[in-house]
Design a protein around this nucleic acid. Structure first.
Lengths: 147, 147
DNA sequence: CTATTTGCAAATAATTTGCAGCTGG
DNA sequence: CCAGCTGCAAATTATTTGCAAATAG
């Protein structure tokens, strides 16, 4: 079973019609992985799908967010980016390279989740809690390591 | 010593000319407190300062962020908001009311900071680490309590 | 079939820019 | 004085909308 079949299935499971445009757009966000913005997604698909309009990309991405298939990440630069990971993970925001890098640590996550479980939170329905690590990459060409 | 004198001093300490516009804008962000966006800041000052242009508000706010006098907060709605608090605090993001509420807990902060102190972080200069608590206010008219 | 979805072009919103004139130190 | 700041209007960028045609189920 190809990954496109999986993508198709996730669309129908979410109650969305599996149109060609949606398949292409959702697949590309998964393929890209770098928290792309609308422009980047549009550029990535345009070559092989010149008829998909940018308005469709905008609408479709919002549809996916509402349907719980993607999440929306905003940077300190103010543009919206899209993230295929729906689990409770954090982001490393590099101001200089504009990269957004996923960060997840089991122990840290457990620490934060249990902290809020112990608290009495009233009048707020928490959807998720995420950590934003803001900084600058020292060598833009190398990877960041946290271990 | 009035708070305007303090505002003036923080400008000069930051190496910025204490112009009338800057005094008014920086003061208003401190007075407002609700993580206002550009439009709200502009509206708040326009009555008493009709000659201050919106472009100046934009430029001035960016100047303050660069100078470390304000921080920039982005919501899941993609617009930039400004925050006079420069310490390491988190934000509760209410999707339904669009409010951004400061959250700080000494114990939680210490937990997170010490977690990253123990980690080997390479190729990243961390500026700050913030927590985003995303959710919906249950009763929009009442306060959120976490204790 | 028919309710949704898409593409287009136009509208709106958000932000930036260039530049001449003003002003704080 | 004069480097840096401001105001204006125009430019750019980001996003949304209305509507007729296309299409998945």
């Amino acid at each position: 079973m190809s990954h496109l079949t999986d993508i198709k299935e996730s669309l129908t499971t979410a109650g969305l019609k599996a149109t060609q445009q949606r398949l292409v757009i959702l697949d590309s966000v998964h393929q890209m992985g770098n928290h792309p913005n609308v422009e980047q997604i549009y550029a990535a698909i345009s070559d092989s799908n010149p008829s998909i309009s940018k308005a469709t990309v905008y609408k479709t991405l919002e549809t996916f967010v509402s349907a719980g298939l993607l999440s929306k990440v905003s940077t300190h630069e103010g543009q919206m980016r899209y993230d295929p990971r729906m689990d409770n993970h954090g982001h490393i925001n590099c101001a200089n390279t504009k990269e957004i890098i996923d960060y997840y640590d089991e122990e840290l996550n457990e620490m934060i989740v249990s902290f809020f479980r112990k608290k009495k939170v009233s009048n707020l329905k928490i959807k998720n809690i995420t950590l934003q690590i803001n900084g600058d990459k020292i060598d833009p060409l190398k990877e960041i390591q946290i271990k």
